[in-house]
Design a protein around this nucleic acid. Structure first.
Lengths: 224, 224
DNA sequence: TTGGAAATTGACCACATTGGTCGGTTTGTG
DNA sequence: CACAAACCGACCAATGTGGTCAATTTCCAA
């Protein structure tokens, strides 16, 4: 499987500071971003180690603190970066769908696959953000987090056409059950592929399998 | 909400060693067990701190290492203990149900509530076990873990009566979707109540809400 | 009341890791 | 060649680690 070439051609204008970092070659930047995402996702803010990040990224300690003035600044840079990636490559395009829940999920899965190929630890990082309890960053994180979750809910669940749902059970409960099942499906897919090399991931097969489940959900939860 | 009095009247005969620990008063034992479960669940084996465990349990460092000879031994004791609790108070009684999937889940939810009241961090600990990656304990953990998951699958999903499922979609996919949705429901419920004091948890309301979702699943996934 | 054993304490150990610094070296470029 | 920016990694004080142990408290039988 080849890397998507059109994903995340990033507009650095929105990101203030980090001048030293933005000039880096894309390859090196991504290595650092992924190493940091991975470490924060695995251990949370407090226990994440900058030593481990530089080791995994293949750079020196001095370089990291040349790009970012502190662990804290690196962390919040990642939050902003992730938000931009998700917003531009994900939510924005789902929003244009404006369809029913399952149609949106089908489209979302494709986009998610593309983002995953470039930033494998990104969704794990986002998942962990929601559970982050570090007191050191609690205040500022709460603001960033509300951004992310608001965007997520409004684009995935906002302005939803629920008229296609079967009418003999509450639409809200159908929506909940679908979201819960598919969220879990997503986590399990990530677990399955996280030990594979990117090239040997058969994204088409994954998407086809996902579509099968979508079809079942459509048959059972939608009007016939 | 009062604590259940009949839950986990533990048969210590199956647990070898830890002589100093089994003689403790139940209250103190539970405090240590819960503090340790909580810490391992939150940070995983490697990063879990014995200092934090003794602090949360309200005992001295020396006491902990008087009961358990090492962090490792404490961890594996917890694995065995949790396995016994889950097996006796949970799987064994679900097994007696021998019904369809949703009926089993309904019964399981009640039992789960009882165990949660006595050992709030227990399910979080089990969830974390499945993701534990510490090399220090990998070998022995793998064995214990297969015990747990085998028991879980055989009692929750083994010998399942799938004849009640609707026949126009594959039974396996229905089973998957139900399990995924309800597993996610369980995690969300735990998140919701983890900040509440035990006394102010309205277990009946939680169960009633859960039953509502079970009813929706039955209507949509079962024969009518 | 007393004596000895068991339970419990917390200061302490050697060692590892932490986020971050800084003097020096390499690299890219005009 | 020169100069600046990029980069390195040994180093720092501070904190935390799993685990120990001499001293103290608690307990109960005699």
């Amino acid at each position: 499987m080849q890397l998507p070439t059109n994903v995340v051609n990033f507009d650095w204008g929105v990101m203030i500071m980090h001048e030293n970092f933005v000039g880096l070659k894309e390859e090196k930047r991504d290595a650092i971003i992924n190493a940091a995402l991975q470490e924060f996702a695995a251990k949370g803010y407090d226990l994440a180690s900058t030593n481990e990040i530089v080791r995994a990224a293949g750079i020196s300690k001095g370089a990291l603190f040349h790009y970012f003035s502190s662990k804290r600044e690196l962390f919040f840079f990642l939050c902003d970066y992730v938000y931009e990636v998700v917003r531009r490559e994900f939510y924005e395009q789902i929003g244009h769908c404006q369809g029913d829940l399952l149609t949106r999920y089908g489209r979302a899965a494709r986009l998610k696959g593309n983002v995953y190929l470039r930033y494998p630890p990104l969704f794990g990082f986002v998942k962990r953000l929601a559970q982050e309890k570090s007191a050191e960053i609690a205040g500022e994180l709460a603001k960033k987090l509300s951004h992310l979750t608001e965007a997520g809910y409004s684009h995935l669940l906002g302005n939803l056409d629920e008229s296609l749902f079967r009418q003999d059970v509450p639409a809200g409960k159908i929506r909940d059950l679908i979201v819960w099942a598919l969220e879990n499906y997503g986590y399990r897919s990530m677990d399955l592929i996280q030990n594979q090399a990117l090239e040997e991931i058969d994204m088409e097969a994954l998407n086809a399998d996902f579509d099968d489940y979508l079809a079942v959900l459509r048959k059972c939860f939608y009007k016939q």
